[in-house]
Design a protein around this nucleic acid. Sequence first.
DNA 1: ATGAAAGCGCTAACAC
DNA 2: GTGTTAGCGCTTTCAT
Lengths: 326, 326
Amino acid sequence: MVTINDIAKLAGVAKSTVSRYLNGGSVSRRTKETLDRIIKETEYVPNTFAQSLKVKQSNLIGIIIPRLNSYATNEILQSVDRCLREKSYQLLIVNTDQDVEREVENLYALSRQKVAGIILLATDVTRAHKEAMEKIGIPVLLLGQRSDATYAIVHEEEEAGAAMGRHALRLGHKKILYLGVTEKDESVGVLRKKGVMDVLKNAEGIDVQEEEVDFNFDITFRFLKEYLKDRVETYILCATDNIALAAYKASITLGRKVPEDVSISGFGGYSITDLVTPSITTVRYAYKEMGRIAAENLLRLLQGEEIPKKIALSGEFLPKESTKAL
Amino acid sequence: MVTINDIAKLAGVAKSTVSRYLNGGSVSRRTKETLDRIIKETEYVPNTFAQSLKVKQSNLIGIIIPRLNSYATNEILQSVDRCLREKSYQLLIVNTDQDVEREVENLYALSRQKVAGIILLATDVTRAHKEAMEKIGIPVLLLGQRSDATYAIVHEEEEAGAAMGRHALRLGHKKILYLGVTEKDESVGVLRKKGVMDVLKNAEGIDVQEEEVDFNFDITFRFLKEYLKDRVETYILCATDNIALAAYKASITLGRKVPEDVSISGFGGYSITDLVTPSITTVRYAYKEMGRIAAENLLRLLQGEEIPKKIALSGEFLPKESTKAL
DNA sequence: ATGAAAGCGCTAACAC
DNA sequence: GTGTTAGCGCTTTCAT
């Protein structure tokens, strides 16, 4: 293995000169040329451990995600990754398998690894989270959930909910079933629902029923196969695309036609909503953009620049085949 | 930041003793107890950079993947990750965005990061790959493609293909359309097809047509919307679930019923094949198991144990609603 | 069982 | 612009 020392000897300079050359310090034209050549010939690459040991920081950015097999996660990962790579940062992905405790553990674990910054796809920001963020002293960027504890990038949930609510009204539906999720999830469980409900409840002669279901397709599908049997609503407004998919499949199973007998919509803009027939009305969230902004802003933060505490991204309402006028 | 030196001083021993304690060397009962206590109190954690700098290796395992947004990739990632975490290894995920050159680059990049081993979700194993693997001197495990260059874990492609071919025959179909992919992909493009074709071509009175399409849903869907217009086959045997999905959506668009007018099947066992209606006949590949075996075997290799050069995993044939007897 | 000392490859003061 | 020097925090002989 070739080290900075070897290079220095071969070039007949001190290793500090080589180091300066490497880190963009000032070196004479001639030295630069020799070094250019020698480093190329020897295929020298600096030892990242020695570097990191010295500067007490790495070029690693940690990202904590709840699960690997989610469309949203993947979109975000991909764009964060792409963005960081351009700036020659490495993404260290840690998956918590939906275990909130492990989010906190990993905050500490990543700080031990001396990551320069952390992106956290948050589900719920607890006291333990805040404590960890304070303690480790590394910039943390939250994605998907609001919290005044640190910087956050979120989706415009209320706006999206309202758009979908208006859509249902516009199509003339009077009996509407809302399938939501736990209110522990501030973004999806509370705000998204609020957006929908504010619109529906302010309208005349609308009958809204509400039910809480699970994020998981299988669980929700099994539940809905029974639950939907004696429902009479003509529009099922689902809090996520996965739930919409389950509602769709359950409706079909019960012999109802979509959208002829019942309209169904989701939220998220997962690509699968386009693959099924009929395609599913949804709001596409700006996952890619969220990832890009997260990466860019985190890097800015690392350079000591100021960035906004909170950014909210608008989604795009996409009416498709699964909803039609009554 | 608390270092091994601090611990040594607090305990009144030499830092080499602390190091021995940390690495399971022999220390007296008493020393052990003091150290236990002090390390707990100070919340000391070793600096991984200093460690790695010294031992010239890290607890990182690199995994090179073609894309982040694929079902197969995610299943594998998840189980590899879980498995490695148990053994306190860290997974370093690098995404190449389907760029074969970047696979090679990253082989080198990971070796610079001193990863202990590399798992490569291969698409095509070129000369450059082999050269890189040799040069870096780090164990590499191939997933999904055969190559005598190093260890490999693959799916039983021919077996799976044959199972599906037999299924089509069993249902009495005579006119069959095979939608395959490029033969550059040895596993899917060559072997999987061979499995299917060997069965179909050996049967009596079977008319098999063959067409090459893309892995990508959108591209293939657009193509099939036209292509399928004047096809008369009653069974479309697709090389992947994504292609099956595209074929399904194109058929629907053209006013044909699945499976009444035409049967469709895929390969892969993506969860989406269950979400759509009708659910799609497929062969489920053992992605989770592949990931687990990959992780376990790579670790074995690192301990100097022997592991088989090639492992082939059988898939599970899953007949569903999208195929029916003629 | 323990300690002293050397050194992994690098960066950054500082002096020239 | 360049060289000297002193560590960063750790592991690992080698004595004792």
